[in-house]
């Protein structure tokens, strides 16, 4: 189990938007400057609170995308069409704007760089975000832990962090990346569009005998399916960590 972090009760703090970066046509990375940020573990999330002028307030949880690094924090937010919070974060929020956040939160869905066992990351859509924090943290600390990422997305245009993932998987450090497209595939792609299934999992994930720890993140249906397939394939349920987003994507 990851070490529990004793933080005392968390309070809301005001971050400032330092930069924004488009990831896809509907998703954006928001770089936050957070004074006195206590640091975080890869996989943790923050709560974001928006308050309207009339006092109406609402909050959502967003995974942290960046490796721990000083007072900087990155979130990647995908717009949900009917969302109350995500369209504001992904389209309206600008450099210099304040944003109320609370965190870091969570001690379960976190990767500990000191653990030697191979790591299997399986993300659906924006479920890749906390997995990216783990990949980045691995690189930051120079860990050689064998990592495999299976990234399921609607199509090539919806992939986050594509260039960075290519670089990180080609530098010989022991990270492999496999894309699985559910609706649209690039020309000449070896696999027809489809959901992650048992044969793909067997083909590209670590064998149960290697005792990997698996992190599965995405929409609830995706996570349930993948976790069930891993258990059927012989993986120890205690070594499968999941994070579900709900019916259709990250937050709203």
């Amino acid at each position: 189990m990851a070490r529990a972090k004793i933080l005392g009760r968390l309070t809301w703090r005001v971050a400032t938007v330092a930069a924004v970066r488009d990831e896809t046509s509907s998703a954006r990375t928001i770089v936050l400057d957070v004074p006195d940020w206590p640091g975080h573990l890869p996989g943790q999330h923050v709560d974001v609170r928006l308050t309207a002028p009339d006092g109406y307030s609402t909050q959502r949880s967003y995974s942290i995308a960046s490796a721990p690094e000083g007072n900087r924090l990155e979130l990647t937010v995908d717009v949900l069409p009917d969302g109350e919070v995500s369209p504001y974060l992904a389209r309206v929020l600008s450099v210099g704007d304040p944003l109320e956040i609370r965190g870091p939160i969570g001690g379960w869905f976190v990767w500990d760089p000191e653990k030697p066992e191979p790591v299997q990351l399986i993300g659906g859509g924006s479920g890749v975000v906390p997995l990216m924090a783990m990949i980045r943290a691995r690189e930051t600390v120079g860990a050689q832990t064998p990592f495999r990422l299976l990234y399921s997305a609607r199509g090539p245009e919806t992939i986050f962090y594509r260039d960075e993932l290519r670089r990180s998987s080609e530098n010989g450090s022991g990270l492999s990346v496999t894309y699985a497209y559910t609706r649209e595939v690039p020309q000449g792609w070896e696999r027809p569009p489809g959901r992650v299934d048992a044969s793909l999992l067997t083909q590209i994930t670590w064998a149960p005998e290697q005792e990997p720890i698996s992190f599965v993140c995405g929409p609830t249906g995706f996570v349930e399916t993948v976790a069930d397939l891993l258990v059927s394939a012989g993986h120890d349920p205690a070594r499968i960590r999941t994070e579900r987003f709900g019916p259709s994507g990250g937050g709203s």
Binding site: G103, I105, G106, T220, G221, R244, G246, P247
Partner: peptide
Amino acid sequence: EDHIDGNAAGGALSDVFA
């Protein structure tokens, strides 16, 4: 499919627990 993980309650629980 309308549930998420208990993990998401971390923020609200941190209002109460240290």
